[in-house]
């Protein structure tokens, strides 16, 4: 801390698929993330958006914040709905049109996991993007299975007693062509991963860490900063898994203690010292495991 940050303008090509005037909260990282995902994906796409913050952002009928068609399935059925839509487009000769799911973590880690697993097993040709704000934020911030250890939510007022589910590992075990983490805190990395996923076929998954200003207790102008802290502290490592076994870690080092990340959010208020230490240990172990997988993969391939 105390280091001066250099501001630089990102030069990202932009295809305006998400329009201004949408219904997101001021400073929302969900909307910013969607803007860049959809921009990289381009206009030849159909979005599947289950009930979630993104469904609110997409707008109320007969208006739409998206310049591409949207189908809203039930909360638990995104990957199945996307599969049906994909097959119908294929039957109509529209194999090049992308089907992209824009779902939250509740609709992905929890209620939608069964059909996501099935779509992954069938290697359906869809891009599934999980906007992971680590809880049911659209209903006022209750815990999901993506909520991290010790975080306070509306349904875990004393802090969550169990750890966050590791969705990337679950999906990597399905040996899908591509699974990666990304965040709007590192936009060029996010855009590159969308481009990479776009060029592949079959089931592709992006898990985007989306700090929720209201749900996490973060000031309106600090969402991006918190996303960067998550990556720098190793709480949310940026990495890619291809075909279930080729691991790439996108940052060489963790550069901060977990404490820096925790102190920036109200959901971790009143953490006790031993809890902070426990979280640091969890992150260290997770990081070491990722490094091991990256190296093990190198040995296998070389």
């Amino acid at each position: 801390m105390g280091k001066l940050m250099r501001l630089e303008k990102l030069d990202l090509p932009e295809e305006p698929v998400l329009c201004s005037g949408h219904a997101a909260c001021p400073g929302c990282i969900d909307a910013l993330s969607a803007r860049h995902v959809l921009s990289a994906l381009g206009p030849d796409a159909v979005a599947v958006i289950p009930p979630s913050c993104m469904a609110i952002i997409a707008g109320a009928q007969p208006m739409s914040a998206l310049r591409i068609p949207v189908y809203q399935p039930s909360l638990e059925s995104s990957a199945a709905a996307a599969s049906g839509l994909r097959r119908a487009l294929d039957a109509r000769g529209k194999q090049e049109t992308h089907v992209v799911v824009l779902a939250g973590d509740g609709g992905t880690y929890d209620i939608g996991l069964q059909c996501l697993s099935s779509a992954a097993e069938r290697n359906e040709n869809i891009l599934y993007v999980c906007f992971d704000n680590e809880g049911y934020m659209n209903t006022g911030a209750q815990k999901s299975s993506s909520t991290p250890h010790f975080a306070r939510t509306g349904s875990t007022p004393a802090g969550k007693s169990s750890r966050k589910k590791n969705l990337i590992e679950i999906m990597a075990a399905h040996e899908i062509p591509y699974a990666a983490t990304a965040t709007a805190g590192f936009l060029p990395d996010l855009a590159r991963k969308v481009e990479k996923a776009k060029a592949l076929r079959g089931m592709r998954l992006l898990v985007l860490l989306v700090p929720c200003l209201d749900g996490w207790g973060v000031p309106e102008d600090q969402g991006i900063k918190v996303a960067r802290l998550a990556v720098e502290s190793g709480v949310f490592p940026l990495y890619e898994v291809e075909d279930g076994y080729r691991y790439t870690l996108n940052t060489a080092q963790k550069t901060r203690p977990v404490r820096d990340y925790l102190l920036a959010q109200r959901r971790y208020r009143n953490l006790e010292e031993h809890e902070i230490e426990a979280l640091q240990r969890e992150v260290d172990i997770g990081w070491a495991r990722l490094q091991h997988r990256t190296q093990a993969e190198l040995k296998t391939i070389d």
């Binding site: 599947v48 709905a81 097959r87």
Partner: peptide, 9 residues
């Protein structure tokens, strides 16, 4: 879940 958007397509 798959039948519905397939039909709508």
């Amino acid at each position: 879940a798959a039948c519905i958007p397939a039909s709508l397509t």
